[in-house]
Design a protein around this nucleic acid. Structure first.
Length: 311
DNA sequence: CATCGATGTTGAG
DNA sequence: TCAACCTCGATGG
């Protein structure tokens, strides 16, 4: 259930621990057995994320495209350095995790909505957890994919086509080019900005949490047609998404509260309910003006906003 | 233990 | 517009 930041973090794990290694690929599921066979025994040569999709390249020229959708998750196990796991040393339950930085150690972790890591000590490779679509195994690391929306082997042309359908990603496109693409797409349509931010052909990687938070941070009415949003506001939205995405990749959390310091910042990192301006806060007082936050179903997704501040 | 709901997308009607 | 996909943590009895 990740938004763009999680997928970038996962791609980074593959870049660090799988790229350059020969991969044993297998699938217990009939639906992907043939796909796994195409990749099996080849060296992984690249790993990258574009928006919510991840692409893994192998030395026979084929790519694995993965989209986690709503429930997908990767389980990693084996040798990961604490440093590589990133700056989210504890999970939501406050359990101890990889805290000794620097020294390589055995880790077992799961990357989904909440990323958790616990010291292992188990045999390698471990038994897969749940129904595994594909297992990618090296000498000392393993990744299990469960529940993805998409998992398929593509040719380079097909990868290019898939990426061409996607809007700009602040971590892929140059800042200027990305911003111009985003501005052009928003300008030309009467579709509400609240829908445009969720449209992966307009901008990549934003999901329901970042959508609501970006709109509040811009004090922007979600219903405002794209072409009626002042251009400066559109540009500010792009720059803010760039900022939030980088924070998300760094911390592993969708931290959207500005200006928190010290204890409040730590609390927000640890507790989801302290982390957002409006997301999942129906009926609670707006953190700025006190007006109850409104929830509205739009295109089947829950949209949260402050009816007073967002105009 | 059963049910609900979720940070998503696709395709049928 | 809505069900289907597919998984599991949170919730309630």
């Amino acid at each position: 259930m990740p938004e763009g930041h999680s997928v970038h973090r996962i791609a980074r794990q593959f870049a660090l621990h799988f790229v350059g290694k020969r991969i044993t690929a297998s699938s217990p599921q009939v639906r992907f057995a043939a796909g796994a066979a195409e990749l099996n025994g080849h060296v992984m040569t690249d790993a990258k994320a574009v928006g919510k999709q991840m692409f893994l390249e192998f030395d026979n020229g084929l790519w694995l495209r993965v989209h986690l959708g709503m429930y997908g998750a990767w389980d990693f196990a084996g040798d990961f350095t604490a440093d590589a796991v990133g700056a989210a040393p504890t999970d939501s339950r406050g359990e101890d995790s990889i805290t000794s930085m620097g020294a390589p150690r055995v880790a077992r972790l799961r990357m989904s909505e909440q990323e958790t890591a616990a010291p292992g000590g188990d045999v390698f490779p471990p038994e897969p957890i749940g129904a595994v679509r594909v297992r990618l195994l090296t000498d000392n690391t393993v990744a299990d994919l469960r529940g993805p929306t998409a998992c398929e082997v593509l040719t380079p042309d097909q990868v290019q086509a898939a990426i061409a359908k996607l809007g700009p990603d602040p971590l892929i496109d140059s800042p200027k080019a990305g911003e111009e693409r985003f501005v052009a797409a928003v300008k030309k349509t009467s579709t509400p900005i609240g829908l445009l931010l969720m449209d992966q052909s307009v901008v990549s990687g934003i999901g329901n949490v970042y959508r609501a938070e970006l709109l509040f941070r811009a004090r922007l009415d979600p219903h405002r047609p794209g072409r009626d949003v002042p251009e400066e506001t559109v540009r500010a939205l792009w720059k803010d998404w760039t900022k939030l995405l980088k924070i998300g990749v760094q911390t592993g959390r969708m931290m959207t509260m500005d200006g928190l310091r010290g204890k409040k910042y730590e609390a927000a990192l640890a507790n989801r309910e302290d982390r957002h301006w409006v997301y999942h806060r129906t009926g609670e007082p707006c953190r700025v003006c006190g007006t109850p936050i409104v929830m509205e179903l739009v295109a089947g997704r829950k949209l949260y906003y402050c009816p007073k501040d967002q105009t």
